[in-house]
């Protein structure tokens, strides 16, 4: 009886705590949708970017995406010229909402053409370097680790070159400085081809 009461009480507490949290997240998502709909001109509807050199953002992790957007706005990723200009048009709070909105969209794997021989070689490089230890077995990512499996090929190649050159700074990605461009190309074929 007492147990039942306690459980009931806890359920109420949980509900009280839970409800505002959801509505906050929902408010953030709908705000992000209002603000982020215009990104689709470059990124495709719902962030399902059909091309090769612009990254997919629909279904990307919100933690990583918020970090990336903040760094674009702060000028820390100056080589991403378009994104540096665009993200300066929003407040930090707005960027977070936009990232929340795109993270709720469905991830749709890339349809870029993959060179199978390169992809095979890329897989071996990924295994040797423990890439998937952080990024997940299928490159699905989580929290601060971006989703990289099924991402667009050209985008992957270009962004890896930026981690390598130090244009984007990341301690976790240090190991990429050991790889040459041909290896990065193979990795891009492998990662984009995970479908």
């Amino acid at each position: 009886m007492i147990n039942g009461k306690l459980l009931f009480f806890m359920a109420i507490v949980a509900a009280v705590l839970y409800v505002p949290a959801t509505s906050f997240a929902e408010a953030s998502v709908s705000e992000g949708k209002r603000l982020g709909k215009t990104c689709a001109g470059c990124h495709g509807t719902a962030g399902n970017t059909p091309g090769e050199y612009i990254g997919k953002i629909g279904g990307q992790n919100p933690t990583y995406m918020t970090k990336a957007l903040t760094e674009f706005a702060d000028g820390k990723r100056a080589k991403s010229v378009e994104m540096s200009i665009v993200s300066k048009g929003y407040t930090q709070e707005q960027l977070k909402s936009i990232a929340m909105y795109y993270s709720t969209q469905k991830w749709v794997n890339s349809t870029n053409n993959i060179n199978m021989a390169k992809a095979e070689a890329g897989k071996a490089i990924a295994m040797d370097n423990g890439c998937m230890d952080c990024h997940g077995a299928n490159g699905e990512g989580m929290d601060e680790y971006p989703r990289i499996g099924g991402q667009n090929k050209g985008y992957l190649y270009e962004v890896m070159k930026r981690y390598k050159s130090g244009d984007i700074k990341s301690d976790e990605m240090e190991l990429i400085t050991e790889l040459n461009d041909a290896q990065l190309d193979k990795l891009a074929n492998y990662l984009s081809g995970i479908r």
Binding site: A40, C42, G44, T45, N48, T49, Y53, I54, G89
Partner: peptide, 28 residues
């Protein structure tokens, strides 16, 4: 206008982005 700018220079990567932009916005 809140924020705006132009590319610092011409290059092949922006050329790629131009093609991808077309594909994106047509699909949108």
């Amino acid at each position: 206008k809140i924020s705006g700018g132009v590319s610092p220079t011409m290059n092949a990567l922006f050329g790629r982005h131009a093609q991808d932009w077309a594909t994106s916005i047509w699909s949108d």
